[in-house]
């Protein structure tokens, strides 16, 4: 369970989030909102990439301020642009990167890497330079690099924004098949229509928090009024 308590966030002198309190325990949670609504900053609070200016973020009781390292191990993060998330020049090296500091034997590491690459149909590309992959393959590689560390929660920051329809569907499928809790920040309303909960952000505040049907309807209405 991720507990966000009275959190405010100021970045570069600008107030980005104001007094947010949420308890995130559902399996599939969507965060939607327009550009600049604060939703991406909110996502970065959940694994300690941003620390709250006021209030606190607790992940299974661990405070992001004092237990950043542990929290980053239990909350994986997939970025919008896979190009910026792939750190290593070769596909398999990139997947193995996160495991390096986990004290596993080379054989255990290899087994995990192989398993993940098979799952996302990347096994044939394992020795390829990562920059030669297609956009969809890159996003799947980015997801693999996070999943291989077996986090309990995975936060996705607009994972489909840069993808074409076919690749978008692949990523959608990948998210649907996760056993973990997924928190997905997105503009893509199709992606989240079958989620358990949709939270709508606007100007740094939560303006709707409900089942997808209700929340998305209110989001669309609010956008049309504006």
């Amino acid at each position: 369970m991720i507990d966000v308590q009275n959190v405010s966030l100021t970045l570069g002198g600008r107030s980005v989030l104001r007094d947010i309190s949420l308890t995130l325990s559902e399996r599939r949670i969507a965060i939607v909102g327009s550009n600049g609504s604060g939703k991406s900053s909110f996502a970065r609070l959940l694994n300690g990439l941003h620390l709250p200016t006021d209030g606190q973020v607790l992940v299974d009781g661990l405070n992001s301020r004092s237990d950043g390292r542990k929290i980053r191990q239990s909350v994986g993060f997939v970025f919008q642009n896979p190009d910026n998330q792939i750190v290593f020049p070769i596909v398999e090296e990139d997947v193995a990167y996160g495991l390096k500091n986990h004290g596993l034997s080379p054989a255990e590491r290899e087994a995990k890497v192989q398993n993940i690459l098979q799952r996302y149909d990347l096994i044939g590309l394992r020795h390829q330079p990562s920059h030669t992959l297609s956009g969809g393959q890159k996003q799947l590689l980015a997801i693999s690099g996070v999943l291989v560390m077996e986090p309990r929660y995975i936060v996705f920051d607009e994972p489909t924004t840069l993808l074409d329809l076919r690749n978008k569907l692949k990523v959608q499928q990948a998210i649907a098949s996760l056993s973990q809790t997924a928190i997905v920040v997105t503009h893509d309303l199709d992606l989240v229509s079958d989620f358990d909960r949709v939270i709508v952000f606007d100007e740094g505040r939560v303006v709707a928090d409900d089942h997808p049907d209700t929340a998305l309807r209110r989001y669309i209405e609010a956008m049309q009024d504006a």
């Binding site: 694994n47 993060f77 970025f79 996160g98 996070v146």
Partner: peptide
Amino acid sequence: RMADEVSDAIDARGS
């Protein structure tokens, strides 16, 4: 700016 995000991604993967 890309490098900034890469740096975030490395931190996010718990290096």
